[in-house]
Nucleic acid binder design. Sequence first.
DNA 1: CCAGTGATCAGG
DNA 2: CTGATCACTGGA
Length: 169
Amino acid sequence: MKLNTDFYTQDATIVAEKLLGKILVRVHDNGETQRYRITETEAYMGAEDKACHASKGRTPRTEVMFAEGGRVYVYLIYGMYWMLNVVTGELNHPQAVLIRAIDKIVGSGKVGRELKIDKSFYGESLTGSARIWIEDAPDEVIFETAPRVGIDYAGDEWKNKPWRFISKR
DNA sequence: CCAGTGATCAGG
DNA sequence: CTGATCACTGGA
């Protein structure tokens, strides 16, 4: 069953944890369907969080994070990799969860490449799209937490938050 | 270690 | 317009 708006409007730290073990579904134009279990996520927690893009203010790129949870936030990094994020939280609470790994595809850049994510997914509704959504899964998940990756610029307080969630089998 | 690669944003 | 920066990966 597709995860609904009630799920996505929770805080990013909650959603990031609960997304572990859930099924990410991607349907291509030719009908080919990919299904992957989400195995690693990171939470970005709003305007306060120096590691969150939205802490730099409301810009065309960060705009979608201010929407109610349940949309896709994508951006290109280093001119090569599309980062796939899920917008979470209530309206005007700019939060998102980065999908870092799905099954054997470990690495946020590889995830975007594997699923053929591009700019056209910016703002896509995860509750209403026919080409990308996430389904609930009953599996119990064992996970550990760790600091987030690649955010040295954020300062110690935010850099050290254990907001990376890694599924252990 | 570091090159590749291009959108994005603040500043003139 | 310019130039710095970047939630990364892959190859030396």
